[in-house]
Design a protein around this nucleic acid. Sequence first.
DNA 1: ACGCTTAAATAATCAATGTTCAATTAAAAT
DNA 2: ATTTTAATTGAACATTGATTATTTAAGCGT
Lengths: 196, 196
Amino acid sequence: MGRRSEHSRPELREMIVAEGHRQISEVGFAHFSAREVAKRIGYSIGTIYNVFGSYDQLIMAINGRTLDLWLDYLESRLHGITEDRLRVAIDAYFEFAVVHRHAWTALYDFRLADDQPTPEFYQAKVTEITEVIVRELTAVLPSRHAAQARPLARSLLATVHGHCFFTLNGTFRLLGEIDPLAAARERVNDALARYR
Amino acid sequence: MGRRSEHSRPELREMIVAEGHRQISEVGFAHFSAREVAKRIGYSIGTIYNVFGSYDQLIMAINGRTLDLWLDYLESRLHGITEDRLRVAIDAYFEFAVVHRHAWTALYDFRLADDQPTPEFYQAKVTEITEVIVRELTAVLPSRHAAQARPLARSLLATVHGHCFFTLNGTFRLLGEIDPLAAARERVNDALARYR
DNA sequence: ACGCTTAAATAATCAATGTTCAATTAAAAT
DNA sequence: ATTTTAATTGAACATTGATTATTTAAGCGT
């Protein structure tokens, strides 16, 4: 077969990312296969390389989709909430990671080579999620500490990430921690106490 | 060729783990190859399967070696220190991860299948590292909070891990965080302040 | 010293992967 | 209708993890 053009380029991109995301959510990054994605959407492996150029860019696109879903979930969870918004944000962090286990883990399983810069579109998505926390922190911090919102957001993201990661990779189970979410909330509260 | 027995079984195991650790330290988990390890020590791929049974067990052995080195480094850094031992422990956590970048990252890149239990020898090593922190926390916490040492150690490990992970995977650079270690120390101090 | 048993080690083999690319096909342009 | 252009393919390649029949030599008993 040759040129079919049953689907436009953007349509094809979307099909590949959607199917890729479905795949990676199902089998995880370790067993993800670009060929399998091609097969599932009825195209050949060559087409994926035409559209994305490389395996790495395909993964970045799929992980980008995960970040989109994550941000959407975070904002939807916060929508209409008036109290304890930071706590809700932490809960949402965990909830998303647990529900989208494999997709979330893939965000950290995959790393570009050291000489390859993170694509701007991807950076932007990470920044967007961070900015949600900056915003929520700003609302909660005494105004004299407003300048601390951004650095604190980075540090608290890392803190919650660590707890979430140890939950999903089994470290916490191994160590006997049965309520990691509560521990994460405590650490965040401890940090906030510093700026009272 | 057939049975050579130039090396005893334990010797062979050691050769494979040593070379495997060298490899994974050099190229990272993503580009690690069991065949390459076999080639480097002058044996065939089959021999590795004879000795370790599976790829997974080989990786667990190599990661176990990393945990050994990590624990050793942690204790050696603490040796003779009389003040700020917890702070030194945090620094050592970062130092080891940065110096053994690829080997440390491999600890988290690899995960056994959900139905496969973590080998006991590996669990023991993780526990040992954790117990170091429990010990140091116990020495620092007011005695009325001694019972909090273990749960707090788990949570602080996750906290420091998150900061270390975001440092190595580029997230912190992306977000403009230039002193992640300082941030990690702050979070630990914040947690300690809770138990004064 | 010889032959037998047993275990170590190999090489060949398989299926699957990422990656590349010349050949093919059909849409678009002339 | 013919030519040009671009999309799509599928075969080829190098590697990988994994399996297994076969070969080899060490160790043992006689």
